[in-house]
Amino acid sequence: MSTLGRSALGRSGVEVSALSFGAAGIGNLFTEIGDEQADETVDAAWSGGIHYFDTAPHYGIGLSERRLGAALRDRPRAEYTLSTKVGRLLEPTEAAAGGDDLANGFAVPATHRRVWDFSAQGVRRSIEASLERLGLDRVDIVYLHDPDDHAEQAFQEGYPALEKLRSEGVVGAIGAGMNQAEMLTRFVRDTDVDVVLCAGRYTLLDHTALTELLPAAQERGTSVVIGGAFNSGLLADPRPGATYNYQVAPAELLDRALRLKEIAERHDTTLRAAALAFPAAHPAVASVLVGARSAHEVRDCAEQFTTPVAEDFWRELREAKLLPEGAPVPVPPQDPS
């Protein structure tokens, strides 16, 4: 088994592996996969040293939670960290019988509808339902999930509910997970969250989180988990038709990604390795979260994450103005001799 570093989230004592597993893919994100493939994917993550797993009710209308819980059932509970999210309650529906959930991004039958709810009661109901789907008696981390259009309820009701659950010992760490940096910065500054999960806003192509979120997190001692390091595909395999933020990448960004790839290859590395190494280098970042739907994908991510990126690669990016001046980059290991 590969050895990955571990970090505690904020002051919580909850530890996460430096590379973590995002379970939207095993919830049939965009494409259907079978139970066996989902199990094999989680097994490969475990074998690669990944012991932090993130899921949500939203992912496949509960399918991700059920599959993740089943795949981890025989693992020692003390040896892994699991997070789920609140903010969308799942309610059964008959209206969409025979339909699918692809409008929400998941290749599953539309057996339930999502109802936004960041109330205190909604938070508790969501966690109870998640525990049932997971087959667990506790989760380690709970995030407020995508409260973009529900800020008032999330701050006034959802967050205090999570704070109470943490004080009761029901959950170990609390936070918020979003695809933006601005509201996460507010969570860091105005609440006592342990961690925020920021997707897609601190990558080789998008440095938004570097301006306020990451400095605020560092100042407050709040941990950051970075998701979307590949910006939904463009930094994994830049080519015409590649996706950026789940849409076809604009030509300007595709050209930039291809330039990054060319520089990486000139320094005998891969763009994937560089894309994972970049967010991990920031001192506020505790873990880099990668989504995978197959054992091959997760093994590749683990291999790329543990592959050193040449110091000259980062130097050339700075010279080419492809990195902001203040962005930390990996420090090469010291030669013990």
Rank of each mutant, 00 (worst) to 15 (best):
P240Q: 11
S223T: 01
R293P: 03
A236N: 10
G227Q: 03
A257C: 08
S232K: 06
N245Q: 14
Q247V: 15
G326Q: 11
V225P: 05
E265M: 07
T269Q: 04
A274C: 08
L235N: 07
A284C: 08
G326W: 02
F278M: 12
Q304V: 08
L276W: 10
R259W: 03
V285F: 08
A236F: 05
A236M: 07
A277V: 09
V298E: 09
P308Y: 02
D206S: 10
P324Y: 01
E262I: 00
E303P: 05
R318E: 03
A242P: 08
A292D: 08
D206P: 05
A236T: 08
G227C: 04
Q247R: 15
L289Y: 03
A280F: 10
D237G: 11
P250Q: 10
Q334Y: 00
V290I: 12
A216G: 12
R256A: 14
R318G: 14
P330I: 07
A216E: 11
P308A: 09
Q247D: 14
A275P: 07
P328E: 02
A274R: 02
T306S: 15
H282L: 07
H282E: 09
R266L: 06
A320T: 10
A273H: 03
E311N: 11
A275E: 07
R318L: 01
G291W: 02
A249H: 06
K321G: 00
G326Y: 02
A273E: 05
A274Y: 01
L210Q: 12
L214I: 04
P330Q: 04
R315G: 03
T307C: 12
N231R: 07
A275Y: 00
H296D: 14
T208I: 06
R293Y: 03
A320Q: 14
G326P: 01
T222W: 06
A275N: 10
V298T: 09
A249W: 01
E262A: 15
T270K: 13
K321N: 13
A295V: 02
C301E: 13
L254D: 03
V288G: 05
T208F: 07
E297R: 12
A295I: 06
E252W: 04
P308Q: 10
G227Y: 01
V288E: 04
R315S: 15
T222S: 08
K321F: 03
P240K: 09
D300K: 12
P330C: 10
E297G: 09
W314I: 09
A209Y: 01
T211I: 15
V248I: 13
G227V: 06
G233L: 00
L210T: 05
R315I: 11
V309P: 11
A274M: 04
Q218G: 15
R239Y: 02
S232A: 13
A264R: 09
T307F: 13
R239L: 04
H296Q: 15
G221A: 09
T307P: 13
F305Q: 12
S287M: 10
D268M: 03
I263P: 01
I226M: 09
L253G: 12
R299E: 14
R220T: 04
L214M: 13
